[in-house]
Every structure is written in C-alpha cells, then in structure tokens.
Design a protein around this nucleic acid. Sequence first.
DNA 1: TGCTAAGTGGCGGGGCCCTCCGTATCGTAC
DNA 2: GTACGATACGGAGGGCCCCGCCACTTAGCA
Lengths: 186, 186
Amino acid sequence: MPAQRADARRNYARILAVAEEEVATHGADASLEQIARTAGVGSATVRRHFPTRHALLEAVFRERIQALATRAHELSEADDIRAALLDWLGALTVYSATVQGLATALLRAGELDPDHANPCVTPLAEAGEPLLRRAEQAGAVPPGVTPVDLVTLIAGIALAAQHHPDPATEATRLLHLTVTGISPPG
Amino acid sequence: MPAQRADARRNYARILAVAEEEVATHGADASLEQIARTAGVGSATVRRHFPTRHALLEAVFRERIQALATRAHELSEADDIRAALLDWLGALTVYSATVQGLATALLRAGELDPDHANPCVTPLAEAGEPLLRRAEQAGAVPPGVTPVDLVTLIAGIALAAQHHPDPATEATRLLHLTVTGISPPG
DNA sequence: TGCTAAGTGGCGGGGCCCTCCGTATCGTAC
DNA sequence: GTACGATACGGAGGGCCCCGCCACTTAGCA
C-alpha cells in the first residue's frame, strides 16, 4: 500500500511546480492562496501538503541546495583548499542572491519551532563542514568559524543585496569584502 | 501661520509615540491598524502622516540614527582611526541587531521609488564617510569600500542574526569575522 | 462669532491566512 | 465488478490587514 494516495501525490507535484514559479517571481512572500488557485486546488490542500510556509520553501529549494551540497563535497578534495572554499562561497552567494526567496528561507529558521533546526541550512552546513575544516587546518581560515556562520553570513549578504539592481554582482562584491576583511589586523 | 494645524501635530506625536512601542515589540512588520487603534485615531490618519510604512519607520528610528551619525563625527577625529572605525561599526551592529526593525528599515530601500535614496541609510553613510576615508588613507581599509557598503553589510549581518537567541552578540561575532576576514589573502 | 480649508475617521473593497467539516475519490477486499 | 472505509479534497467563514473614498468636524483667521 502506498504511503500516499495517487491523487495526493499528483497534487503535491502540481503544487510544488506552481510554487517554484510563484516563488521565483514573488520571492519568499508569495501568496499561498495564489499558488493554490493557479494549481487548481483548494488552499487547504496546499496547507495539508506543506504545513508551514517554510516547509514549502524548503521543498522548492531542495534540489538547488542539494546541488550546492554536492559541489561542496567535490571541492573538499581540491588541491588548493582556499580557492575551493572561496569557489563554494561564491557559488553560495550567487545562488542566494539570484534565487528569489532562498536567502530568506536560509535565515528564517524555525522561528516558532526553535528546537527543530532549519532544514535548509543544515544540509549546506554539513556539506561545507569538511571543506571548512580542511581550510582551517591549512590556515586559510581563522579558527572558531563554523559552517553555519558562513551560510548565515552569506544569506545576510544576499538579503542585503536584494534591493540592488544587480543583486548577484553586488552580493559578490560584498562577499569579497568580507572574505578579505573590512579591516584585517596588523 | 503654522505649516500644520495644532491637532495634526498632536496626532503626529501620538502616532509616533505609539509606533515606537509597537515597532519595538513587533518589528518592522508592526500593524499600522493596531498603531492607529492604540493611538486612538483612524487608520487613515496614520497613513496621512506617514504615507508609507518606510516613512513611519524612518521617523521612529530618526533619533537613533542621528545618535549614530553624531558618534561617527566624534570618532572621525580620534587618534587611532582604525579603532575608531571598528568602534563605530560595532555600535552600528549592536543597534541594528537590537532595535527591532532597524535592520529591515536600513535594507528595505525605497523599493517602489527607486530614484529616491533610502532616508535611513543616507545620513549614516554621510556621517561615516570622513571616518572611513581617514581609515582608508591610513591603510586600515582596502580601497574601494564605500560607507553604504558598510551600512548595508552590517544591516545584512543584523538581519542574519535576527533569529538567534542573542542577536546582539551573534551579530557582533559575525561582524568580527567580516572585519578580520573569512580568509584574508597572503 | 462666522467662515473656510485643513484634518479626521468610518466604511467598503480586496487579500491573505487559517480552520473546520461535509463530500468526493482512491484503493482494496470480496 | 462492486461495495466499503480510509484518505484526501475544497469551499465557506472568521479574523486580520492594507488601501482609498468621502461626508463630516474642527482649528484658526478675519
């Protein structure tokens, strides 16, 4: 017996497809009602499949987050570990700044369920961990930095660049600034 | 003749006072209707005095922004210009992370009136300019950094730290990271 | 004290989010 | 092929919010 009925699965897919477009257009604040309307289902059905807005966003971004995680794993074995880390951070930045709503999803942690970790950040942080650790061991990164720090920081940068006419390049500029440091000591 | 009638001025003050509390509690998304209700005026009156939400936020934060600007002017004549800059950035960070809605107000530029500069950022950027310029001349800051960059970056950091249990210290930590650099060259 | 324009606020329209509950549909067992 | 039970659906209704309109009140000048 299927865990889900066939029509439920179909609706899930329809809703997700519509949500992707809608989020791409209107960002993380896209109207759930509008998504339901376009998908031709009742708004209750949307809420049934995605109990919270964040759950929907997570599903929408899952593939892209997975892609970034894969990238991190590949890069973690590169020769030049610093270049690899910067490469990954750059990709993360461009994604966050380009894909509407991603940065918001990364930051808006489980605001009301604080015990439950943000399911968008976690895979990224875990994937980036080896990369960061190797960089740290190579002395390319100051000690005490966590993967979550990096993801959080970059999401913040992306959000800050959101309003800019060209978010991706603006975010990349700001990233470059924080990589080299605003005012490195000594 | 007064540019405004006395009662209008009174209402303005009442609304602003209520808005300060309401924004302090609920952040930048505070309900304008709720503010109107608490202030004992119609919602139309709120909109008349503050045509946009951003206008209201600007008024709410004006004094604090002014204080930060003053601080920047004082610090711009300090002996240790790097310490002075970092001092200011730290203060800016703590404010942005602590005062509910400030970071949002700093980032949400004139989203619909792109020609008009963000009236929250501008005074800060102008005030920070001499400070930053001196720091740059002293070699404490890489060239090409603008005051707006700094304010934007810090607002982003504050927003990123928003969800954290202790936003101020988390934001300060992240600031420290971007000041020293994630992975400074050389 | 009257007049005029500045100022007010209630009302209605449009949305959105969320929940409840009667109903339709799927998948199975017969 | 049919009948049944669990699963899933979606419309209706309540609550809240933003926004614009327009008849009414009131402050301040003559």
